[in-house]
């Protein structure tokens, strides 16, 4: 089309120029330049099209992110350097005073300890179990789809419902868990009182919900591992476990890292499960299971100080970044070292 119209047009143009008085335009020159310019313009448009269009197509995400991601982040920072009551609204500029008050509050450090403890108790077993579960689901099972669907089932249940069910399970005096424990002949565990027991109980809710989800992500990655690699490995005499450790895990490394990072981010922001673990919502009488997000909520909605709550939000943001980077580094190194051992056998 383009070439055709460019070839046809000069004919019409010359016809027109013969009608127009000579000298008004340098004959021959004018139309030619016109065509050149037009083609150049077209080309520029095409270039622009090629270069810009992809960005236009992906821009909705970034625009949306700007509105719902960056703006709250910036606004929270703005709130955190002001005195700001929940109901009274914006007060005077106070600099870093809110941060100082948060860092001086013993409940902040208590919440940080609880958060890290619950995070470790949930994320570590979660990723390991998910990995093992995915490995099992990757085999030739009967009714595979049923099994795969069923590991995702807990994920469909709302966290609040999970908290209610587990709340009954972990009752200190009349809970099912303690009844079983006493039936075995052990002393009942005070799930809501003892710090570690409460963390284990909360971590189990989190794991119940997220393990299957992570397992499915890992399973998807595992299915992309070429089957002939396993064949050669079994010819070399590698058993199932050896194959899993030396082939499967290194081959799905990027996905493992993804799962670790996302569960780190999630693990440091646990809220619904501990919040609903008792009726007060402050993480127990001694705040023994108050996480950072619950602490943030307490400051914002019980103490009604949004300035301090925003300061906690920013501190939590920084803590998560540090942990995510640390995990990225560690898991890269760990996965890298196993890879080195196996590359000889696996690399083709």
């Amino acid at each position: 089309m383009k070439a055709g119209s460019a070839a046809v047009q000069p004919v019409g143009d010359t016809g027109a120029s013969s009608v127009s008085p000579a000298g008004s335009r340098p004959p021959g020159q004018g139309p030619r330049r016109d065509v050149d310019e037009r083609a150049a313009w077209r080309q520029r448009l095409t270039m622009l099209d090629v270069k810009v269009t992809p960005y236009v197509f992906v821009s909705p995400f970034f625009l949306l992110f700007l509105v719902v991601g960056m703006f709250p982040l910036g606004y929270t920072a703005w709130v955190s350097v002001h005195e700001w009551g929940l109901l009274s609204g914006q007060g005077a500029f106070s600099g870093l005073d809110n941060y100082r008050r948060v860092l001086e509050d013993r409940y902040f450090w208590n919440a940080l300890r609880n958060t890290i403890s619950i995070f470790l108790l949930s994320s570590v077993p979660q990723v390991l179990i998910a990995l093992a579960l995915a490995g099992l689901l990757d085999t030739q099972l009967r009714a595979r789809t049923l099994w795969r669907m069923s590991v995702l089932l807990p994920f469909v249940v709302a966290p609040a419902a999970v908290a209610l069910i587990f709340g009954n399970l972990y009752g200190d005096r009349y809970g099912l868990a303690n009844e079983v424990i006493q039936w075995i002949g052990l002393d009942p565990i005070r799930w809501h009182v003892d710090t570690l027991a409460s963390h284990v109980a909360i971590a189990s809710m989190v794991n119940w919900r997220w393990t299957g989800y992570n397992a499915l992500i890992l399973l998807a990655a595992m299915q992309a591992v070429p089957r002939d690699v396993y064949e050669s490995a079994s010819l070399d005499g590698a058993g199932r476990v050896r194959q899993f450790v030396s082939i499967t895990v290194p081959m799905i490394r990027p996905t493992v890292i993804f799962v670790i990072i996302t569960s780190t981010i999630g693990g440091l922001q646990i809220f619904a499960e501990p919040r609903l673990f008792d009726t007060q919502g402050l993480g127990g009488a001694d705040r023994q299971y108050q996480t950072l997000t619950m602490y943030l909520w307490e400051l914002g909605w019980r103490v009604r100080d949004l300035g301090m709550a925003s300061a906690v939000a920013w501190l939590l943001f920084l803590i998560i970044i540090v942990f995510a980077l640390l995990n990225l580094l560690l898991s890269r190194r760990a996965a890298g070292s196993t890879k080195k051992i196996t590359t000889k056998g696996v690399r083709r």
Binding site: D105, Y107, R190, A285, D286, Q288, R302
Partner: peptide, 30 residues
């Protein structure tokens, strides 16, 4: 709420009565 929590801490054996009273005072200050 802070008062009730202090009493609960004693009930649950996390703190002695004296400790719980002191932390109640700290909570009020907070």
């Amino acid at each position: 709420t802070a008062f009730q929590q202090a009493i609960q801490r004693v009930d649950e054996g996390q703190e002695s009565a004296d400790e719980a009273w002191d932390s109640f005072l700290a909570d009020i200050g907070r």
